[in-house]
Each structure stands twice: as C-alpha cells, then as structure tokens.
Design a protein around this nucleic acid. Sequence first.
DNA 1: GACGGCATGTTGACACTGACAACATGACAA
DNA 2: TTGTCATGTTGTCAGTGTCAACATGCCGTC
Lengths: 218, 218
Amino acid sequence: MATARTSAAARPYHHGSLREALVEAGLSLARTGGPEAVLLRAVSREAGVSHNAAYRHFADHDELLGAVGERCMRRLALLMGTRTDEVRVRQPVKRARAELDAIGRAYIEFAQTEPGWFRTAFAAVKSDQPGDHAQLSAAETPPSARELNPYQLLSARLDRLVEVGEVPAERRPGAEYSAWSVVHGLSCLLVDGPLRYLPPAEIEVAINTALALVQRGL
Amino acid sequence: MATARTSAAARPYHHGSLREALVEAGLSLARTGGPEAVLLRAVSREAGVSHNAAYRHFADHDELLGAVGERCMRRLALLMGTRTDEVRVRQPVKRARAELDAIGRAYIEFAQTEPGWFRTAFAAVKSDQPGDHAQLSAAETPPSARELNPYQLLSARLDRLVEVGEVPAERRPGAEYSAWSVVHGLSCLLVDGPLRYLPPAEIEVAINTALALVQRGL
DNA sequence: GACGGCATGTTGACACTGACAACATGACAA
DNA sequence: TTGTCATGTTGTCAGTGTCAACATGCCGTC
C-alpha cells in the first residue's frame, strides 16, 4: 500500500492536502500541454487519486483551471520582478526606462520559455464575474510583499517614468493598456498565433522593435 | 430539385455541396460560441447531416476548424479593407497616417463586435506546418483582388508611411510586428483577457492611447 | 441503355471527458 | 464509545472525436 507520487511518504489518511496536490499536478500538466491538458481526470490521475475527488475542492473544471491559472500568473509576475531587480543602471532616468524594458522583456521571455503556463494564465480567466474589473488592482491585498500582479508591476514602472519626467503626466492615463497590449500581443502572436514559426533572428527583431515602440511612443 | 440546405426543400441526392454547408454552419456556431463551439457533431447537426459525414471533406476536427478560421480571418481582412476605403483625407501624408489608424481601429472593432469570429480566426491556426511562415505573405497568390490578408494590408500601410516620409526607412524592418502586436494584444485583452469587463469609457481610452502609441512610436 | 466503380453519406462502436448520485472511510468531538 | 461529517470512491450518464463497416446513387464504360 502506501504509494506516494511525489515524496516517499505513505498516503496518511485522506491524503491531507489534496487541493494543493491537484493544483500542483495541474501546473505540471499545463507546463507541457497548456490549459487544454488540465483535465479534471488527468489531474486526479496525476495526483494519484480517483476522478471526482477533485469535486471536494473545486466546484467544477473551470474552478480548478482557474486555480492553476492564478499560479501561472503569479509565476509570470515573479519573473517580471526578478528581471526588474537585475537592472544594474544607477542613473534614475535611465534606470526607469531600463526597468520598463526589463518587465516587458520578462513578459515575452515567460511566454516563450513557458508557453504552456503563459497560455494557461490567460485561458483560465474564463468564468469570473464582471466585478468592476477589480482583480486588476488586486482588490484588498495590501501591496506589501512580492504579491504584486503583472498589471501592478507595470503601473509602478509607468508611474516612475512620470516621476523622473520621461513621460508627460497627461500621457499617463491609459498608458498601461498600451504598454501591456504591445507585449501581450507579441507574446500571443509568437506563442500561439501566426508568428509561431518565425525564425529566431526575426523573433529577435520583433521583440526589439516592439519594446522600442513602447519606449518611443509613451 | 436543386434545393438549398437552409430552405425547406427535400434533400436532393448527396447534398450537393456539403463542405461549404459545413463551413457555413461552423461559421454560424463560431459567431456566438467561439472556436470551442465548432464541434464536429454540432456542425454536422446544424447542417442537417449525420455525424461523420464531415469526414468525407475534412481529415479531422482541426481541419474543419481551420477552414472556419480562414473564413473568419478573411472577414477580418474585409472589414479592414472597408474601413481603409472609408478614409476621406486627401492630403497624402495625413492620409497615410489616417489609413494606418483605420486598419488598426478596424482590427479592434472586429474583435469587439465579433468576438467569436475573432477568437476562431486565431484559435484555428493550431496545426499547420512550420512552412517558413509563408502563409503570412500568402505564398503564390498574386495581390490582385481584395484577397489580401490582414498582415499584407498592414504591410502596405507601413510601406506607404515610409514613402511619404513619415517613417524613416531604417525603422521599417519589424514595424509590422510592433504595430500588429499593439492592436492584437489590446483585442485579446479586451475580448478574452483581464480587460474583459472594462467599462466602456475606459475601453475608449485604451483604444485611443494604444493607437496613438503606434502613430508616435513608429 | 444496363452495369459497376467509387465518392459521398450513415450506422454503430469505442475511448475519453465533465458531471451527478450514492456509497465508503476515518478524524474528531461529544 | 459513538455518531457526525468532511473527504475520497464507485458507478453511471450524456456528449465528444475517431475508426470501421455498411448504404446510396452519380458517373463513365461497355
């Protein structure tokens, strides 16, 4: 008896933390197969549990996929944070620009190195309420730790560009939509869309011109 | 005989033009339900034919979805062409800019007014060969009629901007990737993504700033 | 003008999925 | 000790894509 899928511990009683195990399994499946690989039954199988067990932790398939998607989104935000911290420029104005460039590059880098997760992060958002699009600003959460989402990270960089005087204040409203659109659009076209099989050299060109467009156009 | 499948006439012999009927049915389903509504069985049902009939015209589900997606893409290109033709500016330089703006607006307009078709146009491209990404330039087709795809329409507008001197020639390479990314990204975010429930006023802001970014940044 | 080939459409089956209902187990409190 | 109830299981159902076997009737050939 007592076979564990990840660690060597025997399955204790009721498995203990199945919800977490299911999300983890979903993450693993999504990494290679994208959101369409996050099947209720496949996830249960992966977690070493019978199908329908997931229904004790998620209302339906969408809710499971949503939970996995949230984790993917967090990973995206994490990479964006990491790449921002790696910026070594000291001069404030140049630094502000470099940091914006860094989170943009990180966004595209994530889409390219983890296409399954990237697609899952955005495919998952299917069934959520029109709730004033509050999830963008992360609602209640105090902006304490590294708990920021991609949208918030971007907003902070844009605010900084206004502070240092590189972007006129009257252009600030709506700027996150534009900047986000560029990197998100290119990511989608490269990962999923018609630019999927672009040769690497052309991909490089596309990324650089896209990010340059943001820097010039803001 | 010679009955249309939509009217109430008796089905003649072997249906006559099932392939076309299937694609048409798929288009109808995709319009309201997006690509996930283009089910092999649902399409067959809609066309008044038994399931598996479609296998005489399409290798599998992906091929049917691909055919429907092509039609969606063509409709997108059609709207872009229409909106370009509606530009009334005479002065060549201003006209070049206005036309670029028009195809960008048309792209987003299509995504918003026909989200099901928009998503199908890009969801369909799943299984096609890495064939040198030739489908972008539409391979053999002479650029004769209104047969241009969205990518070609965009390229033509960018070429024109260089001609009239509004865009320096050294910035031309890769420009279609950037411009495309902006409108595609915004469309995805608005239709499918986290900006789905943005209030209409904010949507207006987002569209205008995004298009302004393109004009300024090229 | 009869005949036969063959593209086209149908019926039936199988494995897979998400979802529901009924049942089993065992942790924990009374 | 006992009973409750969250948690996990088994069984089932409708719906899907796909394959194989079968039916139909249009067309060219003799």
